[in-house]
């Protein structure tokens, strides 16, 4: 009963949010383009689904994913995993936090359907040079390392902007040396990798961690994990593309040298 009431409340709130978007689309379509909306009934039903779905989703986040992210952060920094007999707990004592961050980042990304679609497209566009699995693993490793490094930053309390600025500088340098085809794909991979389900969990993990680690402040340290999760896939995908190109070039050089060797062997009398 309580659940039904809170569901209805959440749906009503979302309806107020989505209404302006719907009105704007309808107005633009009928007034500016002077066209009737095709399949009006279907469209209205669709908007109904959007509102109900978003309302239930946000309620589910509040009841499920947010508490879960915080709970994990609390338990992973709890007394039975961290040896609190020492006076100062060093950053390396939080290794279970890093393992968890890596696992969540990797697991959620490898299974992401949107990423699979992009990987297949990239495979076709590159004529098979970029492997579907290679790209998926590259993006997943990027997100995993990103979330892990983000947790390390929260534990140590070092300033976020140095990591992000450093990361973007690396991206700029890598961009200059990467095959042109992969660049748009790499820049998009971060956004593709972080799904609507992953973002709230990762955000809650960061906030929970900043509350649980002594000396950290959620206001200063709690945010930034999502930025890490979006930045590092760019680096890993560009790196993967560079590796692929290097390997191709080496293979081509090898093939060429073998070819000249055989041609020499074939005509030794000349």
């Amino acid at each position: 009963m309580e659940l039904i009431v809170s569901s209805l409340k959440s749906i009503a709130q979302v309806a107020a949010d989505v209404l302006p978007v719907a009105v704007f689309l309808f107005l633009f379509h009928t007034v500016v383009l002077r066209r009737r909306i095709p399949y009006l009934a279907r469209t209205l039903v669709g908007f109904g689904f959007v509102v109900i779905g978003l309302g239930l989703f946000l309620l589910g986040l509040e009841l499920g994913l947010f508490p879960l992210g915080r709970l994990m952060a609390q338990q992973l920094t709890g007394a039975d995993l961290i040896d609190s007999s020492q006076l100062v707990v060093s950053w390396s004592d939080y290794y279970w936090v890093y393992v968890f961050a890596f696992a969540v980042g990797f697991g959620t990304t490898v299974a992401e359907p949107a990423l699979l679609a992009v990987a297949i497209k990239a495979n076709e566009a590159s004529g098979g040079a970029i492997h579907v699995w290679g790209l998926r693993v590259a993006v997943a490793l990027g997100v995993a390392v990103g979330v892990m490094l983000g947790c390390f930053r929260i534990v140590t309390g070092t300033p976020l902007h140095w990591y992000i600025i450093g990361g973007y500088l690396l991206v700029v340098v890598q961009t200059a040396f990467s095959p042109r085809l992969i660049i748009p794909l790499a820049y998009d991979s971060g956004g593709v990798a972080t799904s609507t389900v992953t973002v709230p969990l990762v955000a809650a993990l960061g906030l929970g961690l900043s509350e649980a680690v002594p000396g950290r402040n959620p206001v200063l340290d709690g945010f930034g994990l999502i930025a890490f999760a979006c930045l590092f896939p760019i680096i890993s995908v560009l790196g993967y593309a560079q590796l692929t190109e290097l390997r191709q070039r080496r293979a081509a050089r090898q093939a060429r040298s073998e070819l000249t060797e055989t041609s020499i062997e074939k005509h030794p009398e000349e």
Partner: peptide, 20 residues
Amino acid sequence: GALLVVLGLTLFIYGLELAL
């Protein structure tokens, strides 16, 4: 909560594809 997330996300994206 997890159940609501799945149900909500499903309806949301289904509605998006139908209308928006």
